[in-house]
Design a protein around this nucleic acid. Structure first.
Lengths: 247, 247
DNA sequence: GAGTGGTCTAGACCACGCA
DNA sequence: GCGTGGTCTAGACCACTCA
């Protein structure tokens, strides 16, 4: 009588646990509320901690929980909608949800990016790294790659290498007025440096957004943005984002 | 001399393993090739199987490996680009990469969808489920929800409930000619039924694409598509998808 | 039935945040 | 220094695929 069924096809414990916990989150917990610790929860459900953790991992993947080492597990707020529409060059005024340059330099891009740009694998390109936050939380880290010949005004030796130069590159790119963009979204895991910027652990699931800037059929720049998959829902298109689809 | 560093900041074993294995995949294995089994790999690297599995999980998340129970672990091909651009109503001719109706009915949609549609939580709507495959593999399962009043031509009692009726609903929706769409992408995990259709285990990571069809500012339909996150790279925009960004 | 990956256990120790 | 989640171990059994 305790469980729903006699389970002719016994579903895994962690899966059942996830369902039970998920329902409990809906009915008995408020956003931000802290859950009992893992050892206690495991004991309460009569399972090993590893099994309990498997259920928690799933719930975290779905954006329903947030776990922080040394702190505890809390009920996560609904994912925030993050517009990707023209994140390429948003207005520099920067509302709450905008970009902050971090770093700039000349370096060889990852092989996959070089392929998209049509540059040699070891050819150095303008590289701009920036982060995006929304509602006070970091949500994305991006690397933008622009082949040097595309930005003639920056051909002089790089004097400033800080945010000032980052802004210069962005401005230059903006002046190229790419008529078309083409994006891809896929699942990835955060590298160590990205994880730090996103305030997550290395390997956390992220949504990789690859944007190709096109002028006259040629790829003039490529940006690879890394969005926190736990807290973000990427929105596309023109209308305003509404509602929150369940995971 | 074995490892790269003396590790002043010791990175987790599974993380290091993932790197080593990932490099090995690039240099020593061909796509489709089968890896040694987990017990042997664990022994070879001198770690517990659970630790080895943590590394494999990451690599699978990044689409570099494919694991099948009872079979083994194989090197995955690069993710396939899947166009989401106008997946809403693609040409019915159906090339290799298109949709197959599965099921139709009248049922109350999930709460989150009812909210988007502006219907009552228990109001039944037209529900069409279909699957999409590409290159011979299932890549997505979708549920489309259309409030009954939006499709007056279907107001008669539902006679056929099979694929034929599914096509009728899709045709009706198409005739509404939604001028605008608005999409969101987020990470989720496959429900049991979706997992079956996608030939994956329940809980596998999926990309949830929520599409809102808008006519004259009103939401006339909502579709929730579930794409396999391991094998798919979702592409947006008009230009043809090129290249493969690394995870 | 042999071999694979998937689940589960009961422990241990570590890294981190905070008081 | 205490309590949290994160990592790791060595084992066991189960579910599945395929010869």
């Amino acid at each position: 009588m305790g469980t729903t069924q006699l389970e002719t096809v016994p579903e895994p414990k962690y899966w059942h646990l996830k369902t039970v916990l998920g329902d409990a989150l809906d009915s008995e917990f408020a956003v931000g509320e802290i859950l009992p610790n893992e050892r206690e929860l495991a004991a309460r459900f009569g399972v090993a901690r590893a099994t309990l953790r498997q259920a928690l991992e799933q719930l975290e993947l779905e954006g329903r929980l947030q776990r922080r080492r040394g702190v505890g597990t809390t009920v996560a707020p609904p994912r925030m909608g993050v517009a990707v529409a023209d994140a390429g060059h948003t207005r520099p005024g920067g509302t709450e949800g905008d970009w902050q340059p971090v770093d700039t330099g000349l370096a060889a891009p990852p092989a996959a990016v070089a392929l998209l740009l049509g540059t040699a694998p070891d050819e150095a390109v303008h590289t701009v790294r920036r982060t995006r936050s929304s509602h006070g939380q970091p949500v994305a880290a991006e690397s933008l790659y622009v082949p040097v010949p595309r930005l003639p005004a920056l051909a002089l030796p790089a004097t400033a290498s800080g945010p000032a130069r980052a802004r210069a590159v962005l401005r230059e790119l903006q002046e190229l007025r790419p008529a078309d963009r083409d994006r891809a979204v896929e699942l990835g895991s955060a590298r160590a440096d990205e994880a730090r910027q996103l305030e997550r652990l290395p390997g956390s699931p992220v949504l990789l957004v690859t944007t190709r800037y096109v002028v006259d059929g040629a790829t003039v720049a490529v940006a690879v943005a890394t969005y926190r998959a736990d807290t973000c829902r990427l929105t596309f298109g023109d209308a305003d984002p509404v509602g929150l689809p369940a995971a």
